[in-house]
Design a protein around this nucleic acid. Structure first.
Length: 803
DNA sequence: TTAGGGTTAG
């Protein structure tokens, strides 16, 4: 019989099994795997224990009690039960010790079942029994059991016991039922320090930092002196709400009382300063701690990651190991991984993964989720999938992380499938799930499917959540329905800074920069404080709409008026602006002088600028830098190859193709999508699969004749004959975007715009043709490519011919 | 013999 089975055998039969093991019933939790284990029904339903003679036991009752204590304290629950069966079982004291033993050893289910056996045998539970039982109910996350025990308290007249009420407050809050905790607290005739601490901790547990701070202040008003637990609780509350000033005041109080040198309080202070964005305060405090433990080092590593200082995060790890001779634990790994994710440090992330395996930290759901995020961010979807597939337990965060990994890597169909899978599970999607999946809907789903998800969201508990509405606004903008975005935005009762950032960005990607800047002014007038993302939206608007002077003005005001330091995204927008005006040298100098390490996104901006200004040398520099950061950036290879082709450098085209083949990379097949009457249609170049293909081609031929593009004309004319032949093969005449526009013109209402979406950038020839078609047909044509939406009207494009 | 505790995923 295995130790766990033996333990249950004792629990229900009180008869010794033949091969009694002296081992512990179960090892303490090393990780968050499936624990405690489930037991077979036949063990649970074993017979009621027979009555035994207690004469001998009574003679040795004192030594038996000592033995019971010893076994419980050492976690040997099997032995404790063996002793218990020899004791006086009408004495609640003995039952309490066993229940406490189970609870302290994480065997919550067993604790509850043992209490039920106590009830069954008619032994009256007392004021000591219930705190242990309530704690066990909390441990097993059993709200129904807590309520049952709570009801019992009324019957036995213990509903006012301060210890029991404190336990109830803590457990209700832990299970997310803060109103129940508040009710118990309010009805307590006597409240002590622990009661207040339980409520402060309870508010923190449900993420309500403000109420926790108010509770703390009320506690001081009624004359109760805070202890270390109060300080830790209220500092957590300040961290949640970003209340730096209150946090500093608490720090002053800490300095005045005995808890000043308490390392736990100091860790909470450090964490609070990090979460309030004050690395400097956190560092100063950290340096003063003479005896640093792993937890305080972990808090520091986490703080650096939180404040976008990944290098410092890794330096911390080094010093912790070399100077303090401390061994990193699973939490160290969890705190380090976001730093790897931030800078795309795949090798370092893999080392951490290896370390975690070697040191037995896995399975660990938080650590594994952090690994999924890392691999997702580093485009290693297969690794992420493998970890996700092997998770012993999946929680909502792990599902959300895997969905985000798919979306981040453009694997939108897989993301949708996974989301559907999640919906069929008992887990309820939360605002993070919805905001993660909506970009996939905006990329690949049909309008019908998007309306379906919108309907699904409106039935969710969080349907009016600002976070979800912001994502919905962006989803409609990203799939070309800017009007719907504006309608949802207008109907929002509460708009936060992200709502404004979203709508500014929505107009930005559609090339309506003026509208974006007007919205920014409106936002400021309404007293909304812009943040870093506001300026990303605003600078994107200026960049896409070619508003160069305004761009520089906002870039300057960001720091001067709002005290916001430019981040990598802002620098990217400025390089786009410089590229637009043809200042390639300035753009390169800008990159060289940037205080941040250039990322692939930065080099990507330079590459776009080089392409649009036909500077192959600089494009090569940019591309090499991108490929040194992202070896499998297919788009980068393709763009460079197209530039060589346009310049007639066919040897270089061959060289790029060879490199791509060597790396197993394939060019993304360019597709154009059109939706009419909620039916999606997909076109590839020279596509003839559509049932109305003949009509589409006939209409296209007529249009091309009318706009003077019926003969092969290319933007670059200096080709050798052989090159011209190669070019002819790639003629834009029947490119997918033209086929989609042609079908759009004949299948939609006359006054409606034709909306086409592409998975890759629209080529220059089709861009020119679309301008002419809009002029000739007097129809608005909208083409959303992989970067921006082009609104073609009266022969002009909203992008100002730069994209 | 009872209650509350620092760092951990988007």
């Amino acid at each position: 019989m295995t130790p766990t089975l033996a333990l249950n055998y004792y629990l229900y039969t009180s008869t010794a099994p033949p091969n009694l093991s002296r081992k512990r019933a179960a090892e303490p939790r090393a990780n968050q795997g499936a624990y405690p284990p489930r037991f077979p029904k036949w063990v649970r339903k074993a017979a009621k224990p027979p009555m035994k003679s207690t004469t001998l036991i009574e003679q040795h009752s004192s030594s038996l009690k000592q033995a019971l204590h010893d076994h419980v304290q050492s976690g040997s629950m099997e032995d404790a039960l063996w002793v218990f069966e020899k004791m006086n079982q009408s004495d609640a004291y003995n039952w309490n010790i066993v229940i406490r033993g189970f609870t302290d050893n994480g065997l919550f289910r067993e604790a509850i079942e043992f209490y039920q056996r106590m009830e069954f045998e008619g032994v009256g539970a007392d004021n000591y029994t219930f705190p242990f039982v309530i704690k066990a109910c909390g441990g097993s996350l059993s709200l129904a059991e807590v309520r049952r025990v709570h009801g019992k308290l009324f019957k036995v007249g213990l509903v006012s016991d301060v210890y029991i009420c404190n336990s109830l407050c803590a457990v209700y809050a832990k299970l997310g039922c803060i109103e129940d905790a508040e009710k118990v607290f309010e009805e307590m005739p006597v409240k002590d320090l622990v009661s207040w601490n339980s409520m402060i901790g309870g508010y923190v547990a449900v993420g309500d930092g403000w109420s926790a701070v108010v509770s703390f202040q009320e506690m001081l008003v009624v004359g109760i002196m805070p202890d270390r637990f109060s300080m830790i609780g209220v500092l957590n509350a300040c961290a949640i709400e970003g209340l730096l000033q209150t946090g500093k005041e608490i720090h002053c109080q800490v300095m005045k009382c005995v808890v000043e040198s308490d390392v736990m309080v100091q860790t909470s202070l450090i964490d609070m300063y990090h979460k309030c964005g004050r690395l400097d305060y956190a560092e100063r405090l950290f340096d003063k701690i003479s005896q640093k433990n792993v937890v305080v080092w972990n808090a520091m590593i986490h703080g650096y990651a939180l404040n976008a200082s990944p290098v410092e995060s890794f330096s911390c790890l080094k010093t912790m190991q070399e100077t303090d001779k401390l061994r990193p634990d699973a939490i160290t790994m969890i705190n380090l991984l976001p730093s790897c994710t931030q800078v795309g440090a795949l090798m370092e992330g893999k080392s951490i993964h290896g370390y975690a395996i070697r040191h037995g930290f896995l399975p660990h759901i938080v650590l594994e989720t952090a690994l999924i995020e890392l691999y997702g961010a580093c485009s290693r979807v297969k690794f992420a999938e493998r970890i996700f597939g092997q998770l012993a337990q999946k929680n909502l965060i792990s599902w959300n992380t895997m969905i985000s990994a798919y979306v981040h890597n453009g694997r939108n169909w897989e993301a949708l499938e996974l989301f559907q899978d999640l919906v069929s599970k008992p887990l309820d999607p939360d605002p993070i799930t919805i905001s993660s999946i909506l970009p996939a809907y905006s990329e690949v789903a049909s309008l019908g499917q998007r309306k379906q998800i919108h309907g699904y969201i409106s039935k969710l508990e969080h349907h009016s959540n600002t976070f979800i509405l912001n994502s919905t606004v962006y989803m409609y903008a990203k799939c070309g329905h800017l009007g719907t975005s504006q309608e949802i935005f207008d109907r929002m009762i509460y708009r936060d800074v992200s709502s404004w950032n979203t709508i500014i960005m929505a107009y930005a990607i559609h090339g309506f920069g003026r509208r974006s800047t007007r919205l920014f002014s409106e936002m400021v007038e309404k007293g909304i404080q812009p943040n870093e993302s506001t300026f990303v939206s605003l600078l994107t608007a200026c960049s896409i709409s070619g508003m160069v002077d305004e761009g520089w003005k906002y870039y300057a005001s960001m720091k001067l008026e709002y005290g916001i330091d430019p981040g990598i995204e802002h620098y990217g927008c400025m390089i786009d602006l410089l590229g637009r005006t043809g200042n390639l040298d300035q753009a390169k100098t800008f990159i060289d002088e940037m205080p941040l390490l250039p990322t692939a996104r930065i080099w990507g901006s330079l590459l776009t600028a080089s392409r649009n200004n036909r500077n192959i040398e600089l494009a090569e520099v940019a591309a090499e830098n991108i490929l040194s950061l992202e070896h499998d950036n297919t788009g980068c290879y393709v763009l460079l190859s197209n530039m060589y082709a346009e310049a007639g450098r066919w040897e270089d085209v061959k060289r790029i193709k060879f490199r791509m083949k060597q790396k197993g990379l394939e060019k993304t097949i360019g597709c154009s999508y059109l939706e009419t009457k909620c039916k999606p249609y997909r076109f590839i170049n020279h596509d003839k699969s559509h049932v109305e293909s003949d009509t589409i081609y006939e209409v296209l031929d007529v249009i091309l004749r009318k706009i003077g593009e019926d003969k092969y004309v290319h933007s670059i004319t200096k080709f050798r004959p052989l090159d011209l032949m190669r070019k002819k093969q790639n003629s834009a005449e029947h490119h997918s975007v033209r086929l989609a526009i042609s079908y759009g013109l004949i299948s939609t209402k006359l006054r409606d715009p034709v909306l086409v979406r592409r998975n890759t950038r629209i080529c220059e020839d089709c861009h020119n043709a679309a301008k002419k078609v809009s002029e000739m047909t007097k129809r608005e044509i909208i083409v959303g490519d992989s970067k921006v939406f082009h609104h073609f009207r009266d022969g002009n494009c909203s992008c100002g011919d730069y994209w």
